[in-house]
Amino acid sequence: MTVSLLLNFGLLVFLVAVALALAHWRHLFPVAMLTGLYSLLSASLFTVLNAPDVALTEAAVGAGITTVLFLATFGLTRAREKPVKSSRRLIGLALTAVTGAILVYASLDMPRFGAPDTPVQTHPLRDKYLVASQDEIHIPNTVTAVLGSYRGYDTLGEVAVVFTAGMGVLMLLGRGRRGRKQNPE
């Protein structure tokens, strides 16, 4: 118990520290690196919360591919943030503070962490997914059973979204105007 408490606490402190460093830095290369670090810390938190499926995705997408895409983008644009007028900074600070306050206020409405009487625990679907799925699908990993079978339509839609997004990027960036003639591929 204390170990997981310490882990949670340490990871959250690191998250806050990385977020502050992110806000502080003007040069975008370290910012990209720190974004990757932020994702890695989030992935560790998900692992502590027993959500390894999400953690795998966060580590691979957030810490891995997104960072590389950021770096590749800096090759196309400039890698330094434009200086901002101080009056605009104040507006940004105020907006961030208000949004943060609203989020904290909303989080007070959430059930306590691990509370047994939340809809997640009491809804009939919980038995369906966690208990009946073992008889109906015979697969130990309930996440896969839910994603692939019970919610197969949604997953098909997600794959279609990934496909469409990829095709969109390829159409926008795939070939430069000049490259089109020389490069039939």
């Binding site: 591919i65 895409l69 090759g75 997004a165 390829l170 960036l173 795939g174 070939r175 430069g176 490069n183």
Partner: peptide
Amino acid sequence: VMIAIFYVFAGRGRHRDEDEP
């Protein structure tokens, strides 16, 4: 899709016009 996106991002470097073929 992930690899394809990486290719197009990384392939558009400084020498966009020269190294296309």
